[in-house]
Amino acid sequence: MTVDVMITLRAFYAAEAAYLTEGAGFEQMAAHLASDVVMYQASSLPYGGEWRGHEGFRAFIAAMGESWDGLWFDEQQFVSDNDRVVVYSRGRLRARRTGRTLETSLLQWISFKDGLITEFRPYYHDTSAVLAALTAESNP
């Protein structure tokens, strides 16, 4: 793993959290993405499907932002094979509509080329818990 890949990845994660939590601009994330980046999301999620290129990723992150208004990473571990990184993330998301906070974990397979992210393949621990946080009303 080159230092550049980890710098790129950590900067991307910080920009993603700032976008969802603080309303930061998309451009902070885009600086770390290849022009032909692909995001794959579980089809059962409100932001599911394949999102291609910067405009596709912009649409994905906007759709994700409609679902969540907070993202905090509590733990991250990285395993690398040159231009691919597997990331274990444990953290919290706050659902915009319900106000519920979901504590969850996921694995992501992330590919790089020329120091930029080309592909994300997230594998959620429990997509039904994600959907429940987004749809269940919060308890008073």
Score class of each variant (00 low, 15 high):
residue 35 S to N: 12
residue 89 S to P: 00
residue 14 A to C: 06
residue 58 R to A: 14
residue 65 G to K: 05
residue 100 R to K: 14
residue 23 G to D: 11
residue 100 R to H: 07
residue 41 Q to W: 00
residue 94 R to A: 13
residue 29 M to R: 04
residue 79 V to K: 13
residue 36 D to W: 04
residue 83 D to V: 02
residue 132 A to D: 07
residue 2 T to G: 07
residue 72 W to Q: 15
residue 17 A to H: 10
residue 56 G to F: 03
residue 35 S to T: 13
residue 137 E to F: 08
residue 16 E to F: 08
residue 2 T to R: 12
residue 137 E to M: 10
residue 88 Y to F: 15
residue 85 V to L: 04
residue 45 L to T: 00
residue 2 T to N: 14
residue 38 V to E: 15
residue 115 G to N: 08
residue 118 T to K: 06
residue 97 R to G: 00
residue 65 G to V: 10
residue 6 M to W: 02
residue 39 M to L: 15
residue 33 L to K: 01
residue 114 D to V: 01
residue 6 M to Y: 12
residue 108 Q to F: 09
residue 116 L to R: 02
residue 75 E to T: 11
residue 91 G to Q: 06
residue 86 V to H: 13
residue 96 R to V: 14
residue 50 E to I: 07
residue 57 F to W: 12
residue 98 T to L: 11
residue 99 G to M: 14
residue 68 W to E: 07
residue 52 R to N: 14
residue 129 A to C: 09
residue 79 V to C: 10
residue 65 G to Q: 07
residue 105 S to D: 08
residue 76 Q to E: 13
residue 113 K to A: 02
residue 135 T to F: 03
residue 36 D to F: 05
residue 4 D to F: 04
residue 88 Y to T: 08
residue 84 R to L: 02
residue 51 W to M: 07
residue 120 F to W: 09
residue 80 S to F: 06
residue 127 T to A: 11
residue 18 A to E: 14
residue 53 G to S: 04
residue 6 M to L: 15
residue 26 F to L: 15
residue 99 G to D: 12
residue 44 S to A: 15
residue 78 F to Q: 05
residue 45 L to V: 01
residue 73 F to N: 11
